[in-house]
Computed example of a mutant assay.
Amino acid sequence: MKEGRVKMKTEETLILIKPDGVADGHIGEIITRIERKGFEIAALKVTYATDRLLRVHYASKADKEYFKDICSYMKEGPIVALIAKGVNVIAAFHRMAGATSPISALPGTIRADFGREYADGNLRNVVHSSDEVQSAEKEIKIWFPELI
């Protein structure tokens, strides 16, 4: 290794294309954006959220007033769950996804381009992604137990 260079570690992250992203036909574009950045799709499946799975995934939010709305939203239809792999994939995809609220997300991000406000007031923001290595490891085990 040359002096001054830092060897970067390959990471994995969980990405969920949520029911609104699936229903509005954005699966291909989201995957294309991931691949254009040079990241590998290490696993992919179409699945459905269950109450048990959502309680485990959103354990830190389970006691919040809005948790019922999250569960209702995530069970509106199929979800595409995928594992993306690459150097700094967690931070890179977070930037690609944009701010949590589609109205606050910067133009060119997934949430700005494909998200929108809904009349019922529930937040639907197209994608989820792990925010750090530890949560990625935990979330991948939740959504891809067959890979353990």
Rank of each mutant, 00 (worst) to 15 (best):
I17N: 03
K45P: 06
G25P: 07
I41T: 07
I83T: 03
T10H: 01
T50E: 10
K18L: 07
D69L: 14
L54Y: 09
R95G: 13
I140T: 06
H94Q: 12
I41D: 06
I34D: 00
G98A: 03
R33F: 01
V89L: 06
F39C: 01
I103Y: 12
K9F: 10
K7R: 11
E117Q: 05
V133T: 11
L106A: 15
S72T: 12
H26G: 00
I41G: 00
D24G: 09
K7T: 11
K68W: 02
H94L: 11
D120P: 15
T47I: 13
P145E: 14
D69H: 14
A92I: 08
S130H: 03
H57F: 06
I142K: 07
R52C: 13
K75T: 15
I70G: 05
A99T: 11
R124F: 01
V6A: 15
G38E: 03
E117D: 11
M74D: 05
F67R: 07
Y58S: 12
A112C: 14
P102K: 08
M1E: 14
R111D: 03
N88H: 09
E76T: 06
M8Y: 09
K138M: 09
L44I: 15
T13L: 03
K138G: 00
N125H: 04
L16F: 05
H57D: 13
A105C: 09
Y73E: 05
V80I: 11
I27C: 12
A92P: 02
R95V: 14
A59P: 00
A59K: 09
E12S: 01
K7P: 01
V80Y: 08
D131Q: 02
P102R: 05
R5K: 14
I34L: 04
D113S: 08
I34T: 01
N88R: 13
T109L: 08
I27E: 06
A119R: 14
P19M: 01
D120F: 14
T32E: 11
A42H: 12
A136R: 01
L123F: 06
N122P: 02
S130Y: 02
E3M: 07
E12R: 10
Y66C: 10
T50K: 13
A112E: 00
E29L: 09
P78V: 14
S135G: 02
S130P: 01
M8K: 15
G108A: 15
V133K: 05
K64G: 10
I34G: 02
G28R: 02
A81F: 08
K75P: 13
I90W: 00
R111W: 04
G108F: 11
D51W: 05
V22A: 05
V89R: 00
D69G: 15
A91H: 08
I41F: 09
K61M: 13
M96R: 02
L14Q: 03
R36K: 15
A92R: 14
I34Y: 04
I140Q: 03
K18G: 00
G28Q: 01
I142G: 09
R52K: 15
K2D: 13
V56R: 13
P19S: 06
K2G: 12
A49E: 04
E146V: 12
F39S: 04
P78D: 12
K68M: 09
M1G: 15
T109P: 11
